[in-house]
Design a binder for these strands. Sequence first.
DNA 1: TGTATAAGCTAAATCGATTTAGTATGTTTG
DNA 2: CAAACATACTAAATCGATTTAGCTTATACA
Lengths: 349, 349
Amino acid sequence: MKKKAVSIKTIAANLNISVTTVSFVLNGKAKEKHISKLLTQKVLDYAKEVNYRPNQIAQSLRTGKSNLLVFMVEDISNSFFSKLARIIEDIAYEEGYKVIFCSNENDDEKSNDLISLFKFRQADGFIIVPSPGIKSTIQELIDENIPVVLLDRYFPDLDCNSVVIDNNEATFKATSHLIQNGFKNIGFITTDSDQTQMQDRLLGYEKAIEESSLNRHVLKIPYNETSNGKSKSAIKSFIDEHKKLDAVFFATNYLTRSGLEVLKEDAPHLIHEFGIITFDDNELFKIYNPTITAVSQPLTEISTELMKLLLPLLKHEVVKEERVKNVLVQAELIIRESSGAKKLVKSQF
Amino acid sequence: MKKKAVSIKTIAANLNISVTTVSFVLNGKAKEKHISKLLTQKVLDYAKEVNYRPNQIAQSLRTGKSNLLVFMVEDISNSFFSKLARIIEDIAYEEGYKVIFCSNENDDEKSNDLISLFKFRQADGFIIVPSPGIKSTIQELIDENIPVVLLDRYFPDLDCNSVVIDNNEATFKATSHLIQNGFKNIGFITTDSDQTQMQDRLLGYEKAIEESSLNRHVLKIPYNETSNGKSKSAIKSFIDEHKKLDAVFFATNYLTRSGLEVLKEDAPHLIHEFGIITFDDNELFKIYNPTITAVSQPLTEISTELMKLLLPLLKHEVVKEERVKNVLVQAELIIRESSGAKKLVKSQF
DNA sequence: TGTATAAGCTAAATCGATTTAGTATGTTTG
DNA sequence: CAAACATACTAAATCGATTTAGCTTATACA
């Protein structure tokens, strides 16, 4: 039933020439290898006629290159990551690479499993949102000269290419913006993760709070209790216990979701009074009521920076001296009603 | 620099035995092939010691199996698809398969490119959201005995496994629900695609409208004009021109987004009067104001049904007679304020 | 004692490409 | 005219696994 695909061998046999010749022609080395124009054309025509496609598996085995990139994120169904995936997929495709996506759930064992797996699948390069404890695995990849770029978070004492948002600056600006709009007791709702992205977000918030001599109100939800239900009850207690709160800053998109649910369900009157800022924009925030101010991560810029680091590594075009680059991308604060602009907007109606 | 990975050959050399023996042992065929217990253990111990991992590329070349599945959707950054991707990734992983995701943009050329590409990469199976004109490509896959399952839409006259939502029933129920709640002029905003999923959604709407002898109000936005901006102006004109409209049904999640933007921007007073139903739920709909009634596609059920069809095909466990199955999954109507429940809910405050 | 059968192991072909190191001509050139 | 070089092409090794066919030696059975 399954008819065998055309191989270089069948072409050679049918044209009564050697596989070497066929290979040279199909790899564009005809000139260099002194294959006559006549024969070259004959091979090309025939290959076209039978719709020859090289078997990439065989190619990979021989060359050690697979043209596969791995894009490993925390959770591919998180829209921040799936939107990045889409852009990266397109860029990679144009450069002749295919992308395998996978989710590590920020779990070290799963990360290590996946990395080792794709290493043995000859993945040519990795874009990784690292889980907390895989520094040594990343170091191994680097030692083995396998191209890696870290995304979203990094290891401060590891020399590895990375593209991350300037989290510190982003939360500093956003918090300062709340302060300027008159909010005095700003809660910061985050996870207890000690990974860089969360630490930096906290630092930016704290810096702004200190500069204005305000009080710090921080809720750290244990990372393994960030399911919607558990987050909601934690946030609820936090709001209940901090009567003075007049604003909240959610440090991740999933915390925002839980937080908005809490406000909607338990304090619908507060939602228009509270200052609200969230990390990561969402298509619906600009039409929510109130519209929600968000720290927006520039998806296209992040993706292109990632590929700008990765592609030269893949092509071995990298000068040793500038091997490691850490790109810091600035986030954008999209100001909407929820951070104080609401009074203004309301009066427009 | 790049140290070579352990191969079966180095193991054989280091233990002074043949690669054949090593291969037999590592494939669990020691008994069957009469390899002594002593030697078997020696090989296993040594393989463990040097952390041997088979080169999957070589394995693929030899066996013709790659353990790769392709999950081709319209757009992986659409949350319906990325959420499915996440579940499928997990199921596949447990069965020893890796998944390559890709977006075809509902474009035939891109679909064909990608399919042909992964065919030559020896993908073991395909889950495909087909673009309109790739029936013959799918037929080819089937003819070549390559496992395929279609998702979300199908070709009525093609004998191919598929898992789709009962679109017709879903929109029928949802529309009937609006009618029961007293809405009399229900607009249906869809694309001009003639693919099954969109046709069936329209049919369900029309059936409900006819049963109640109401007037049909349909807006078909050309598929290539579904960018947010163009959709918005089309929807705006539609609402402006149909003064009698008291409800709208959005047939896809991206049309809902545009539609809600239009309502928010141009008719904020209408948003609480209008009946609104949308295809595909969104995490924020339950806390939107008003909360939005949605036709929710059961992601886990769809994913498991897909894999229930695909896995036996991959393992060649399929009896000829029951080769083709078309699974119809029922959607769930999640009733919220926007479809008329609002009066009730409002009175609770 | 002779022969079948089992036990224990291996050589070599194979998958489909790439690439090195040729061979056999033809053409220049000093 | 012989050495040097260019042209046109190919045999065979290689990547790392799997698998068929077979080769010894040991044991069983009649």
